[in-house]
Amino acid sequence: MTIIFHKVHGSGNTFYLHEEIPNMFYNWPLTAQKMCNPSNENGADGLLIISQSTKADAKMRVYNADGSEASMCGNGLRCVARFVLTKLGVTVATIETMKAVLSVQQVEPIFKSIDTYKVEISPVSFKLTSLPMKHKNHKQIVNEVMPEFSLDIHFTAVSVPNPHLIGIVPIHYIEDTQFQEQLATSFNIDNEHFPDGVNVSFVHPVDESSIFVRTFERGVGFTNACGTAMTASALVSATINLVPYGEITVYNPGGFVKCEIEKNENHVHLSLIGNATFFATYSGELTEDGEFIINSVILHEHEINEYKELELQAQKNVNDGWSSNEYL
């Protein structure tokens, strides 16, 4: 049977996206491993599967490049939102994820005519049990230096619902990724702190209302961007007064997004706003052992080129911000 996969990305976080045919069953963890391998059309960070839902307009499942399943994916959710909203001919819908039913909507372009979507990120918890994380007798960790991790990085642990360890770092940790990779790798093998692993992000301010985030994703490694990590990083930055609450621009190696952090008494509402770019459509056959045999490819060159312009503008904005002594 001929099936379709779209190659998509949100902020340079790349995925294969497929709408599942009812009553057809495939080994999606194995397929994710095969399709996301760099030897296959440069690979991808994950696989997004859209299916029918009894709770929402559609259901999303997310498989990392290693075949593990993630609770949520903010960048992937925007791409799923674009597919579902276009199919239904609407601008607002709901998508069922592993932990919650989330609202999605099409909004004004974030840059030129780029397709842009706003998605809800939920649930949110600072409880260490929600990640889960074990650290002495702590019930939560907010803006703390933990000497066994680092002597000069303030960490916060939060789930949104994917588990995140957010470090506010001096700029040399952004310029040289070696320490972040070593630390994150140690937390994603057998360790005493994170039994299920954790996403590790390093954050440095760009200006008074924007930050730069680099993320080492659980089950993937370094990616151009991670939607839940960017949202978690914006939340943490606002919580510790690095930036004000409201709309925060979050730059990353793959471009930028906007995060809305709304706080009302003890309740926090998070939204992620950014591109949903479809840059290729593949038609072919999927074998039982997860191999996708491509018959035809359509490249969406206008979307590819327009996003390259966004990337260049994002790099310029970051460099301009860091040229100020205040943010070095």
Rank of each mutant, 00 (worst) to 15 (best):
Q106I: 12
P123Y: 01
I294G: 09
Y251V: 03
S122Y: 10
G221A: 11
A81L: 11
N64H: 05
V200C: 07
Q33L: 03
L242C: 04
H193G: 09
W322A: 13
T287K: 11
P161S: 14
F292P: 08
G197I: 09
I166L: 03
N137R: 11
T228I: 06
V203P: 01
E108H: 12
S103W: 01
I211R: 03
M35C: 02
E208K: 11
N295A: 06
H269G: 09
F194V: 07
E288G: 08
L17A: 07
Y282H: 10
V107Y: 10
F149W: 15
S130G: 01
D196Q: 15
E262W: 04
S11F: 06
E247W: 06
S53H: 07
L235D: 01
G227Q: 10
M24Q: 14
S283I: 08
E309T: 11
P38S: 10
T239I: 05
A314M: 11
V203Q: 03
A276H: 08
N137K: 14
S122R: 00
Y26W: 12
K87T: 14
K118A: 09
E192K: 15
V84L: 12
D196W: 13
T287Y: 10
Q52W: 02
K112M: 07
A58Q: 01
H302C: 07
G197T: 09
H193F: 14
E148T: 10
K127L: 12
S39W: 00
S125F: 07
I95E: 09
A280E: 06
F256Y: 15
E20T: 03
E217Q: 10
I3K: 06
S210H: 08
S150I: 03
V84W: 09
E311V: 15
A32I: 06
V104I: 15
L312N: 14
Q52L: 12
Q313G: 06
V145S: 00
V198F: 00
G227N: 11
T54Y: 04
I3H: 05
I189V: 15
V169D: 01
D207I: 04
A100M: 13
T116H: 04
Q52T: 11
V198S: 01
K127G: 02
S39R: 15
K263E: 02
G255E: 01
F216T: 02
Y307I: 01
Y327V: 07
P244G: 09
I21G: 02
F83N: 09
A81F: 14
F5T: 02
F155G: 00
S296H: 10
G167C: 05
Q180C: 04
T14C: 04
S237C: 01
I114P: 02
K112C: 04
S39P: 01
H6D: 15
